[in-house]
Nucleic acid binder design. Structure first.
Lengths: 267, 267
DNA sequence: AACTAAGTTTCAAATAATGAGACTAAGTTT
DNA sequence: AAACTTAGTCTCATTATTTGAAACTTAGTT
């Protein structure tokens, strides 16, 4: 996930942190070293520093490193202060209650979808446990509706960063297919996931746009092909739109980091 | 929250990150500077680097900094890999279903309680705790039961770090009162929160201990004095114990960072 | 006992961090 | 509207830290 090093030692150390997180499992020093651009002692010292700082956790039995508990603490503050979650919370609760299906709140993060909050149909838990998960933008409902309403330059840059990995037989295969889909979404004002990411999973997604038309995030209602159809999901358009408008209204007073001005998208 | 700098530039930068998080609200550069040990240009460069790295988010309208979205992504990995949450998840679900009250899963983090997971009551209590949230150890149910089963040396060091701030008329006022309470907890095998942190809020808490007797975390069932009593909560002891044993069993194969060997507790 | 691989330490050279001070921009007072 | 104040940004010589080749230690083979 293309982060810019070049912020000196800090940037390099955080790149190592990302590397550990990217493994998705506890990882040995030698595994990190094998794919690292840093020489052995340099990498070693970074890992040591990060472990001292509890940004990494070291398991002495297995001699493995994993992202550390300090991140959980820090992320709570980030989630409360730098995401739509606290603003959207009551509206997401209300939406969840009415539709009785899984609902998601997402934001864009470096050309990827970052899930910020969620309500399950069954157990109404709200927590970043489920938040913090990253997903592809080109084959999720929330991803596509957010892309659709970015400005042309940003769209191009974000599309260039998509992998277009084929997850199912319905996954959009290339930039052209995606662009055409984004046109449809702009026309309708909302979009679908037609089993593009997981077979049997469909969703309807609605962008959250500021009054100035800037993309703040997206909402979605997810279900399965066993339980409903795309046409069935379309019944949620009015309440989704209403919810998105309410969130945008409450977010008016709150200007949060502009996706278009971070160096990860190179703008 | 006493972190050890001295890991060079990395440690210093992370101290700044903690400082921003500690504010609990977006903060201006000058506010950071006022309470910083770093000279202006040094602090300035740290804040710039962290912002570039999206560990901080800058709001250009208000000229304020807040913990950044990258933390949310990283914390998801930490939560899944370095906490009891994934192991305890099914057991917490089951517990929540049976007791129908708010249940918490917590771990110790530098002499403080870190809430790792939560299930809301069917009949929701208005209370604000979530994963990633930090709380005091000396006046919460989960905090006290975890302290009780640490070894003597560690207890002493952790007690020395407690603030003993008086939240309610029932808050334990000093180390002596806490030590006496810990003795009771060791005798019973579980503990209570007797409105020590918030008026009207009571809980019963059970430690999660490894077979070797090491403290892994704690579980609690929380309710209000309107709905039940301490004696009423005591009915949950069997299922709490059973749940704690199951979590410990599933965690057997998983050795996670030892609280006793990080330099933040100075051991 | 010899070999191998993983992890750790050393130390001189190279590089990056440091911070006093100067500068700019924006807002406030006279 | 000029002088003043304050917050934020930049510069550059000095200083301190990072760097990494190489050597070493440890633990696990063969």
């Amino acid at each position: 996930m293309g982060h810019v090093t070049g912020d000196g030692t800090v940037g390099k150390a955080l790149a190592v942190l990302d590397q550990v997180a990217a493994f998705g499992r506890p990882v040995r020093f030698s595994e990190l070293l094998a794919q690292s651009e840093f020489p052995k002692p340099t990498l070693y010292r970074f890992v040591q520093s990060l472990t001292n700082q509890q940004m990494l956790a070291f398991d002495p039995d297995r001699q493995t490193y994993a992202p550390g508990i300090r991140l959980v603490r820090l992320a709570h503050a980030a989630w409360e202060q730098s995401t739509l979650a606290p603003i959207a919370r009551p509206h997401l609760d209300a939406l969840s209650k009415v539709v009785g299906e899984t609902v998601h709140l997402a934001q864009l993060d470096n050309a990827h979808v970052l899930y910020i909050d969620k309500r399950n149909a069954a157990n109404p838990v709200q927590m970043y446990s489920q938040a913090g998960k990253v997903g592809p933008a080109y084959c999720t409902g929330v991803g596509k509706v957010m892309l659709a309403f970015l400005d042309e330059d940003t769209i191009n840059k974000v599309i260039a960063q998509q992998s277009f990995h084929i997850f199912t037989e319905h996954t959009l295969a290339d930039a052209a297919a995606l662009r055409s889909e984004l046109d449809d979404i702009r026309t309708n004002g909302y979009g679908f996931d037609r089993e593009e990411h997981e077979p049997g999973i469909i969703c309807i997604a609605m962008p959250i746009l500021s009054e100035g038309g800037r993309v703040l995030g997206a909402l979605s209602v997810t279900s399965t092909t066993n339980r409903t159809t795309l046409a069935g999901l379309e019944a949620y358009v009015p309440i989704l739109h209403e919810t998105a408008v309410k969130v945008a209204r409450d977010a008016r007073n709150w200007s949060f980091p502009d996706y278009n001005t971070n160096q990860a998208t190179g703008i």
